[in-house]
Write a protein that binds this DNA or RNA. Structure first.
Lengths: 256, 256
DNA sequence: CCTTGACGTTGTACATATAGAATATTATTC
DNA sequence: GAATAATATTCTATATGTACAACGTCAAGG
């Protein structure tokens, strides 16, 4: 479904519009039609029509004076709609806070969306002098780092698809596929995953899966910290805390 | 809902997709293809293709078991991109907080997007026992209430267009167009607008315009409270505070 | 267990959104 | 201030996304 396969979308305007919105979201400054079209390999006229339609929907803003486009507040309305119904963030926050303070590390709650990305939906910063940070809304490749090993272990995906996607990942210190597969297998047994500097050098990530219903992976919890700090605090202990919190969350999510 | 303008969009898929996203955002429960299509007057097949495209972009989630669709966390990514670059909310928050506590009312910062809607982008709750509330991300018709009078007064819109749009508004106690036009004219002179129970019975709203550059209306500040409470605190004083905060914001926005 | 109804999904003809070139508009340089 | 370059926008033919109907599938009710 979310494959990289050839299946051509029956509504390509959507993909283009989403690309425009993301580009505007990541851009520091307002952009003109041609700049957007060039960046996204779109035809300027098509790009213009899409921008006008998006502006009509109040998802992008248009400054007639400078003829530049930006994101508009309409995206806030959508985000609010999502937040209103999301129970995960509410349930996860106290658990994230507790683990973050007890272990002095930054904790993230991420949502898994298909095999493409995971998105940070909740966070709790640690207490140390120096803390890693990631904004709510940030996207990461679904199979990267420790959370990615959880997705691979519990997502119920075709091993062949995993192999293909694995080859497209960008790590700072890439593991070999065989080594990664072994770690994924271990994750399936222990219920948590560890990434020691593979994704980002010097950064250790410990993650555990959260299921919205038995067998249905939907989120993951992740502790991120500098490798030295994690080792000092005891990696095993941390892994136990993260996995415990994730289990507790899974129960509450599938429960009521 | 979109526009009365005759020009047919060159990318109607966008409008439909946006409508789907908003519908899902406002829906309490996940929805199926047909339910969405029926609600939005779409052909089911088209609706299906749009949903698939949106799912591919991680803007909607799909539960293969129930075949139901929901908003997905991708909308958070867009909202984050918007928040990152928005200076208004950061600059407005302390001013909103101050006026809210000094006058014991709820203060809203809204962004004006064309003539269609304004969107709440910042808020500060008052201190009283009972407070009115509006969520960040909520949308209101652009010309409604006191903020609407500001838009009409300072938006630089064609009077004829204003008249047409005015007739489409829904007030609890609608003013006549002539009366409304007079109030708008007064707003243009005084720099603030008041709505005493027109939009919502018993609720008084005082608003003042914020300009991103001289003459370019972009936002508005609004104080909302129960009519009795506002009168007790002194409407003139409140209006002065709101207008003062708005002026100060305009200077800082156009300044740096 | 069979029937019924509603839903999700897939093929196909047609209307139309898109690509590309041409034109208008703005910014920049001399 | 004129000339130039880059940009935004309009125009038009055609590839293509959309609407409609037919199909397959599932759940409820008899």
């Amino acid at each position: 479904m979310t494959s990289d396969s050839a299946a051509p979308s029956k509504a390509p305007a959507i993909a283009r519009a989403a690309a425009i919105l993301r580009l505007l979201g990541r851009s520091e400054a307002p952009l003109g039609v041609n700049a957007i079209a060039r960046e996204l390999d779109l035809v300027p006229s098509t790009c213009l029509y899409l921008l006008r339609a998006l502006a009509e929907e109040e998802l992008v803003g248009f400054d007639p004076a400078t003829k530049r486009y930006t994101l508009a507040a309409g995206v806030l309305t959508l985000a609010r709609g999502w937040l209103k119904r999301d129970r995960f963030a509410d349930l996860a926050q106290p658990l994230l806070d507790r683990v973050a303070t007890e272990h002095g590390l930054t904790m993230l709650g991420v949502q898994v969306v298909g095999l493409q990305h995971m998105i940070v939906v909740a966070k709790a910063l640690g207490t140390g002098n120096f803390q890693l940070n990631a904004e709510v809304g940030s996207r990461f490749p679904a199979l990267i780092s420790a959370t990615g090993r959880c997705v691979a272990a519990f997502g119920g995906h075709d091993p062949e698809v995993l192999r293909r996607r694995f080859s497209g990942l960008r790590w700072e210190a890439p593991p070999t596929f065989d080594h990664w597969r072994d770690e994924v297998a271990r994750t399936r047994q222990t219920g948590y995953a560890v990434d020691e500097g593979n994704y980002i050098a010097g950064v250790t990530v410990v993650a555990a899966p959260v299921f919205r219903s038995p067998g249905q992976l939907s989120h993951a919890l992740a502790a991120v910290g500098l490798g030295s700090a994690v080792r000092r605090g005891g990696l095993e202990q941390l892994a136990g805390a993260v996995a415990g919190a994730a289990r507790s969350l899974s129960e509450r999510l599938s429960g009521a």
